[in-house]
């Protein structure tokens, strides 16, 4: 009887996990930037052989501002886990996972391109989706979205994102 890789990993990481949440049956572990690389290596050894996704979230104006999110999958044991590290806006950098999964290469370039988060130890960190001479990081919350107004007859034109206004967040 093989053990669930989630149990192996949570046991191994133990106290290095800063926060542990479960929402809709999905387990999220928040780690420190220092402990991140070791945790990813431990996850791969525990059976999470597939780096499904690597992305970031801009939580502006909350600090620390950015979250780097790793979605890991164990195809044999059929389980998933989400690992996170929170970083400040100034000197936003996390260790690169390219040595653990080669596939992290492009995913990290994408996060760098759209959020401006650096990955220390990445072999070739440059823009991937945006043009090389682009200024700014488009997925940051303070990067403006350019939109063309929609013409409604008898009304002042609105840009698409203002047609239905944003309701206030909960909490």
């Amino acid at each position: 009887m093989t053990r669930d890789p989630v149990d192996i990993l949570t046991q191994q990481l133990g106290a290095t996990v800063l926060e542990q949440t479960r929402f809709r049956d999905e387990l999220t572990l928040v780690l420190s930037t220092e402990g991140l690389l070791a945790a990813l290596q431990a996850a791969r050894a525990a059976g999470f052989s597939l780096l499904t996704d690597l992305t970031a979230v801009d939580r502006y104006p909350v600090t620390p501002r950015f979250e780097v999110v790793y979605h890991l999958t164990a195809p044999d044991a059929r389980s998933r886990i989400r690992l996170k590290a929170r970083i400040e806006e100034t000197d936003a950098a996390v260790p690169s996972a390219t040595l653990v999964w080669a596939g992290a290469n492009w995913l990290e370039r994408e996060v760098f391109d759209l959020y401006g988060i650096r990955f220390d130890g990445h072999p070739d960190l440059k823009r991937i989706l945006m043009p090389d001479d682009w200024e700014g990081y488009p997925l940051r919350k303070d990067f403006p979205l350019t939109e063309e107004p929609v013409q409604f007859f008898g009304h002042t034109p609105k840009v698409p994102s203002e047609i239905i206004p944003k309701s206030p967040p909960k909490k």
Binding site: T52, V69, H71, K170
Partner: peptide, 13 residues
């Protein structure tokens, strides 16, 4: 896959 983060408003974060 779709990874959606919600802050409780009518738009995804």
């Amino acid at each position: 896959g779709y990874y959606i983060v919600s802050d409780g408003s009518n738009r995804p974060t």
